[in-house]
């Protein structure tokens, strides 16, 4: 679970793409998903997402994220199917329109979340931050907050699993099937973890200030984030996705 958020280094076209282009691509997929209600278009977008994973050389990761999201999706699908009352009744309280809307909602969720997670696995947080500052003129303080938060997720999970292991060794059984019970056991552990991580984030900010945080400007970055052929491709694909979704709907 912890390695879910870790960046996989590489030299694929996706790795070489400007982080800004990757964000544009992610946004384009999301916009396309919200423009259309056509299930086939959504399925196509989902396939496109998985393609991103293949191109980025992280196929296995793409499918494992997909599987993770699928679990949430099943739950969401059932909820949606039960709550939509329009359309013709198929069985019990489930209607045909309910099923279709549920499918669209779930597909949309998958389509939007997958590329976001995938981009994170092929892009270093510092590259995202630096390029946002350099190209989109995002104030550095925001970029810093963003990277610190991203960096903090795996660290938090690492500590969480450490604590859970320690507790398991003392006889606490976390592998209960009852989700509510499990949550009840985990929540008390989260509080001290959160407090310590807030303190740690403060220490990180202090350390950054002691290394010239306040002097950093848009021009400070040593690495330059230029746009190349891959990026042109990225922008074209983004435009095509949005246009296609808008046309077919």
């Amino acid at each position: 679970m912890t390695d879910l958020f870790q960046v996989v280094p590489g030299n694929s076209p996706l790795h070489r793409m400007n982080p800004v282009t990757k964000i544009v691509l992610t946004l384009a997929v999301s916009v396309a998903a919200f423009l259309t209600d056509n299930l086939f278009v959504l399925l196509f977008l989902l396939a496109f997402d998985l393609m991103i994973g293949v191109v980025g050389g992280v196929t296995r990761k793409a499918f494992s994220i997909f599987k993770g999201l699928l679990k949430v999706s099943v739950f969401l699908f059932i909820l949606q199917a039960l709550f939509v009352r329009r359309g013709n009744r198929l069985f019990w309280i489930v209607t045909d329109e309910g099923l279709l809307t549920a499918a669209a909602v779930v597909l949309r969720l998958l389509v939007v979340c997958l590329p976001l997670a995938l981009i994170m696995t092929v892009t270093q947080p510092s590259d995202i931050a630096n390029s946002l500052v350099q190209v989109l003129h995002l104030p550095y303080a925001y970029a810093f907050t963003l990277t610190t938060a991203i960096r903090f997720i795996p660290q938090f999970m690492e500590e969480m699993s450490g604590i859970m292991e320690a507790q398991t060794a003392r006889g606490v059984e976390f592998d209960t099937k009852n989700a509510a019970k499990k949550l009840g056991m985990l929540l008390p552990l989260c509080v001290p973890l959160l407090i310590s991580s807030v303190r740690r984030t403060g220490a990180t900010a202090t350390a950054a200030k002691a290394r010239g945080f306040e002097l950093r400007t848009r021009q400070s970055g040593y690495k330059r984030y230029g746009f190349g052929a891959v990026d042109l491709m990225g922008f074209l694909v983004s435009a095509a996705l949005i246009a296609g979704a808008a046309l077919i709907r």
Partner: peptide, 27 residues
């Protein structure tokens, strides 16, 4: 220049190279 006692919390980047660059860039 100060090297703090707690190692983890003074790291600001996710890659070694970027961590070394950080202060150099800022100053």
């Amino acid at each position: 220049g100060t090297v703090f006692q707690d190692v983890e919390s003074q790291i600001v980047s996710s890659v070694v190279e970027d961590e070394i660059l950080y202060g150099l860039e800022n100053f």
